[in-house]
């Protein structure tokens, strides 16, 4: 038996394909987001940012191993570049920092806890990292602190709700279809189901 914490090829390809799907969605979301930012400014943009942290949280929640969040976000960013992002360079840097942000949240709990509050924290750290990155990349230091503060607030809310709660919802719905039975999340759900069945049989 090799190192249990290392990713096997099956997990890598599955993670990659989920991230590729999200990479394409991220790209569509950018067009939508830029439209919103053009009208509402950075605060409107803030509300949308959580969506970009979905791939790492979804993958980490499904596979539950170290390094998954960061790698998933890098793959999603890579896909955006391969498909033809207009903003490839920034996307790559953002992918790294966002993934790192989410990864830190899981590392704080030693990769043991994947309950909703942890996922929400991961989403918030992800959007926080995303805020810091755009702050430096696009020179937000030139704006009044009021607007950057508002932006950070909306981004954190978006990270908790869209990224944390939203990803958990999707993953749980996927578990019900049975495709995740070979992964950490599917296994946990199956043992829970079996325990419940055993109790109801004897009760």
């Amino acid at each position: 038996m090799k190192n249990k914490k290392a990713l096997n090829l099956r997990e890598i390809v599955v993670m990659a394909s989920i991230s590729v799907v999200f990479g394409v969605l991220y790209l569509l979301w950018i067009f939508f987001g830029q439209f919103i930012q053009g009208i509402l400014g950075p605060v409107g943009w803030g509300l949308l940012t959580g969506f970009w942290i979905m791939a790492p949280i979804l993958c980490a929640y499904i596979i539950q191993k170290p390094g998954v969040a960061l790698t998933a976000e890098l793959i999603a960013a890579g896909t955006e570049i391969l498909v033809g992002s207009v903003n490839a360079g920034v996307v790559l840097i953002l992918g790294f920092t966002q993934g790192l942000g989410a990864e830190i949240a899981f590392a704080l709990f030693f990769y043991r806890s994947y309950r909703l509050p942890v996922l929400m924290l991961a989403g918030m750290l992800g959007t926080f990292a995303s805020f810091l990155t755009t702050y430096f990349l696009y020179g937000y230091s030139q704006y009044s602190p009021l607007i950057t503060g508002l932006m950070l607030g909306t981004m954190l809310i978006s990270g908790a709700l869209l990224a944390g709660w939203g990803s958990k919802n999707i993953a749980d719905a996927l578990t019900k279809t049975g495709v995740l039975d070979n992964f950490a999340l599917g296994k946990i759900r199956r043992t829970q189901r079996m325990k419940k069945d055993a109790i109801s049989e004897h009760g």
Partner: peptide
Amino acid sequence: LASAIRKAE
């Protein structure tokens, strides 16, 4: 997503 995961496996 379900079919993506199946294909990837």
